[in-house]
């Protein structure tokens, strides 16, 4: 019969117990390290996005307030065969969108502003300092490239994310771990976008608005960060893809 008995206050354990514990600890140590590495390696990449926190830069372009505030920045050297403008989403600091009423007198005008860049892939956003947005002295450039191209009625499957976090302020700014933050951001006026992922690893973002082109922030809060299917009219304004859909028709995918 094995009479070995572990006594906590003894200097050393009984030989058989000590040998057994050492072996178990070694095995657990190796197994836990291996499992942790294996688990980390099979995780999805969170993507590369940048928030240039603390770096305030100057920007100028044509301010557009519909459907959400954005800045159209003329591209030098454009020959008319491509988009003549780059589009930067504009938001306020923290979890807020810009106040469109306060900026209404500047809609369609050339403005200068200060802000912090947020970017991911070909999506660019500026966290603007609201008081820095001022009419520029120069005349606004001709918005020749700003015509809207209708892309028809489409059904798209994806996830509603808050654009500010997803474009770079939080990483990963998507999926359920980020749901609470996304709801707070969207309720504060950050533009909601439908993130449509493709199996080849790329993704597109469509700005989500009502059929009349109005913000739908409050109506989509319950659907944020979950797989959804949305049917609506898609249009392109320069590089901005817009999805006009009735929030009541958004389907949550089970």
């Amino acid at each position: 019969m094995n009479d070995d008995f572990y006594i906590g206050w003894e200097t050393s354990a009984a030989p058989r117990i000590g040998k057994f514990v050492r072996a178990v600890v070694l095995i657990l140590f190796v197994a836990s390290i291996s499992l942790a590495l294996a688990f980390a390696m099979v995780q999805r990449s969170i993507g590369v996005s940048v928030f240039e926190w603390g770096m305030v830069k100057n920007f100028s372009g044509v301010l557009k307030l519909e459907p959400y505030p954005h800045l159209l920045v003329p591209r030098p050297g454009a020959t008319g065969t491509q988009n003549n403008f780059s589009t930067y989403y504009l938001v306020a600091p923290f979890k807020f969108g810009l106040d469109r009423k306060k900026l209404s007198t500047l809609d369609g005008k050339l403005v200068s502003l200060q802000g912090t860049l947020i970017y991911r892939g070909n999506q660019t956003m500026v966290e603007a300092l609201p008081d820095s947005i001022k009419a520029a002295d120069a005349e606004s450039p001709m918005l020749t490239g700003e015509e809207t191209i209708q892309l028809g009625r489409q059904t798209l499957t994806g996830e509603i994310v808050d654009s500010k976090c997803f474009f770079g302020v939080m990483n990963p700014g998507q999926l359920l771990p980020h749901r609470a933050c996304a709801i707070r951001c969207i309720s504060g006026g950050i533009p909601p976008v439908l993130l449509v992922r493709q199996t080849n690893g790329t993704a597109i973002c469509l700005l989500l608005v009502s059929p009349a082109g109005q913000p739908v922030n409050q109506q989509v809060l319950d659907l944020v960060a979950e797989p959804v299917q949305i049917t609506g009219e898609v249009e392109r304004q320069d590089e901005l893809l817009i999805l006009r859909a009735d929030p009541k028709t958004i389907l949550r995918i089970k």
Binding site: L151, T155, L156, T157, G158, V196, R197, Q198, T199
Partner: peptide
Amino acid sequence: PEVNTLPDG
């Protein structure tokens, strides 16, 4: 949710 192809346009 992932899609194989995006709609035309």
